[in-house]
Design a protein around this nucleic acid. Structure first.
Lengths: 131, 131
DNA sequence: CCGATCTTTGACAACGGTTCTCAACAAGCG
DNA sequence: CGCTTGTTGAGAACCGTTGTCAAAGATCGG
């Protein structure tokens, strides 16, 4: 039941802290390897899974189904505006939307409501670069 | 470039029409097989892919990443409230949310904005059944 | 009708992200 | 220290999905 602090777990958290944007488990793994910290891929997955469960990281699914992870500034519920090219992320919240979502769902007799609201776009830098 | 009308494609569309809720490609395949219509799994995937491209069906990702398909009543942009237990679906739209999404994204200098807004919950029937 | 043409099909292999397996390993504790 | 028990990692397994390619069939000009 513990939750031992191992070299590997520390490394994953540190790597996440250095990355501002959403990254895949494989990208994290790659980054760790590149800096000399050898950590197994399975371990990276397990660490991310644990962190996600503890709400220490946010998870979201890319359009191709891959899971992306990010250490967000705020731990409270929020959403994201993500650049689909470079992964640049802006945290956003929309109290209006939250209210709307639960009202709509409740009106239909639904319970345990959860919502997925993510915004994808192309950030100014990537738009300029693609020119 | 054609788009030939084959027995298989017709079968997939018909099966979709009979299912009110979001179903996976494999469930569709299973259903077709069960009713005697033999269609290859790859063909089901291809048909769904084509239909999705033509906006004939809506696609959404289940929490485990599996793609779910549904023939929706309206072809215009809309969202869904889905029961995570039985798949029961209610089409919803939120003009307020649409406006909010594009405003927020534009304010951050993002382009080609796209949003994912889906609501998940447990419908009244499933809640009663789970008791 | 009849082929010729050219898309579609389907069984199966391949793919890619993620999870499982299990023996070797190391945190934390007394 | 030793022990106990959670953790690691290399590779296999998993599973939804897509690719392969020869055979089948839809469409069309004649």
């Amino acid at each position: 039941m513990a939750a031992r602090m191992t070299r590997q777990r520390t490394a994953v958290v540190e790597a996440l802290d250095e990355m501002a944007d959403f990254r895949s488990a494989q990208q994290l793994h790659e980054a760790l390897r590149a800096r000399g910290e050898s950590v197994g891929l399975a371990t990276v997955y397990r660490a991310l899974q644990a962190l996600a469960e503890a709400s220490e990281v946010d998870v979201l699914r890319a359009e191709d189904g891959e899971s992306l992870y990010r250490r967000c500034a705020r731990r409270e519920h929020h959403h994201h505006l993500v650049c689909r090219m470079c992964g640049r992320t802006v945290e956003i919240d929309g109290p209006t939307v939250e209210a709307w979502a639960s009202k709509v769902a409740a009106a239909q007799g639904f319970d345990d409501i959860e919502h997925t609201i993510e915004l994808w776009g192309t950030c100014a830098d990537c738009r300029a670069a693609a020119r």
